[in-house]
Design a protein around this nucleic acid. Structure first.
Lengths: 138, 138
DNA sequence: GTCTAATATTTTAATATCAAACAATAAAAC
DNA sequence: GTTTTATTGTTTGATATTAAAATATTAGAC
């Protein structure tokens, strides 16, 4: 296999490996990766409309409707129609949602830190720089 | 955000970016990423049982049943029950499947090479080594 | 040899994903 | 001001994804 293809394969495997090793706290809390992504975005950025959430977690907006639906069913978030522009629906964490994500996020975060610790700080910096160049360019 | 979390985020974004930029030839051929993965595995490794295919494309075996079902519907692969151990089902490319993957794979491959070319060979080597250390460790 | 454990696949139920069509609303053009 | 265009979100239809239970088959224990 040529260098670019082999590098791409390793990149994909690394991303999938770290994710699968760090998603246990999510599934233990009954959250899917997308649900966790939504709650985390709301935790760190405050209330957001669905379009912004979709952009943050890189999913289509049709999809977000369903993810939010399932979070609403579990009373972890609530929808609030904007008064000024009725096209927008702002999503808010409920107290239950806030409590859950405040408990789960540190666990996931700690697992990611643990996993990345295979690389030194310098290596992580370097990896981040290389990845950023592949990520941008849109 | 701390270095490990920021590095992880960049890793994920890079993997998703390159994949989304290189999957056009697949969707143009009416193939999902998983369907492409199955056909590619069969192209490069020859006939495989479903368990081995699942391991190759990192998906659950329950899932593979459906992906293969959809490929069979389009006559791109066929199932063949093993005579020696009837638990195994070996999946073979049909002539149509072989023809399709032989057309699509080089396109995807070329797109990946193009995308990775943002990095020099040395940088790709380095990225591959860093990613491999994150990927292994199971 | 029979019973038990292991393996390969399928099924089921719930959620996710995307693309495309649709509905509602707002902004811009005229 | 009405019409056109753009934006936000929902719905629909097809496929994917996982976990867990079920099925079929083989291998191992006794």
């Amino acid at each position: 296999m040529t260098l670019p293809l082999s590098t791409y394969t390793k990149l994909m495997r690394a991303a999938e490996s770290v994710t699968s090793r760090t998603s246990r706290p999510m599934s233990d809390a009954g959250l899917t990766i997308s649900q966790f992504g939504v709650l985390e975005a709301l935790l760190h950025r405050g209330p957001l409309c669905q379009k912004d959430i979709a952009a943050k977690i890189l999913k289509s907006s049709g999809n977000i409707t369903m993810v939010i639906d399932n979070l609403v069913k579990r009373c972890l978030v609530r929808r609030e129609r904007s008064e000024t522009d009725r096209r927008f629906i702002t999503i808010h964490l409920t107290p239950e949602g806030s409590s859950l994500i405040n408990e789960v996020f540190p666990q996931v975060s700690a697992a990611i830190v643990d996993n990345m610790a295979i690389l030194s700080s310098e290596e992580q910096e370097l990896l981040g720089q290389l990845c950023r160049r592949l990520g941008r360019q849109d």
